[in-house]
Design a protein around this nucleic acid. Structure first.
Lengths: 121, 121
DNA sequence: ATTCCACCTGGAGTGCGCTCCAGGTCAACC
DNA sequence: GGTTGACCTGGAGCGCACTCCAGGTGGAAT
């Protein structure tokens, strides 16, 4: 088994069918195959790419930048350098985001113990 | 010094003046004092509250829930239990968010090393 | 034959969280 | 007395990322 209907793909990728269509429309998904009656047929490769997109989205990358990354990905090995740069930049932002979350979480926890949280009261 | 103009408050709190007005309008900020000519005057207490709001916002709490928290905060000590519950629930979401980020960051880093990232090439 | 269902399209609508705007006020400075 | 600048109000507008809708198609089951 290596080809998937839109609904299977939605389930496996975690994106809704509407989002899959939207992503194809704006160019995040390229060359999605169609069967004889015009329906989308997703491959394992497509699922792999969707996994990458999901990773980028969930770490807060804006669609516009994912689009940039997609364009680079279409450019073949020549764009490895640029893709590397883009991901490293993003990785730094993710790192900063985690740091911020941790710092703010500390404040929340201290507020919790102020209100008499676990092992407080 | 213990009272601040809107622009000072914006600078100190990290929210824009427009956002401060908006927060007051929707009820996240309550009882902000005014001077004789109708301008807002923020106190250290207000700044403290804004710090809490900022913490909640930056950890992804939706405005609607911050509103709920604000209402509870107006309710005095009787609402400590509910506030505690709300913050504990939020803390768990923050924890999950951090975990997700860390997990996705791993994928990004492995992609980076695939592209020939630091100490790779 | 018809009912059903998953899918298709283009385009409109939604929810969130601001952000901007027009038109006005007031205190202060030149 | 005029100008400036920070502030005020109500309300419109915006950017993002979807999400929904109307109307239609094509294959499969009853």
């Amino acid at each position: 088994m290596s080809s998937y209907s839109p609904s299977e793909t939605a389930e496996k990728s975690g994106f809704s069918i509407d989002t899959l269509r939207y992503y194809e429309k704006i160019g995040l998904l390229d060359g999605i195959a169609r069967n004889a009656s015009g329906r989308r047929v997703f491959t394992d490769d497509d699922l792999g790419w969707l996994g990458m997109l999901r990773c980028l989205r969930e770490t807060g990358m804006p669609i516009a930048e994912m689009l940039r990354y997609s364009e680079l990905a279409r450019g073949g090995e020549e764009t490895f350098g640029e893709r590397l740069e883009l991901l490293e930049e993003h990785d730094r932002r993710v790192e900063a985001q985690i740091r911020l979350l941790r710092a703010q979480q500390k404040k929340i926890k201290s507020k919790i113990s102020f209100y008499g949280g676990p092992s407080g009261e």
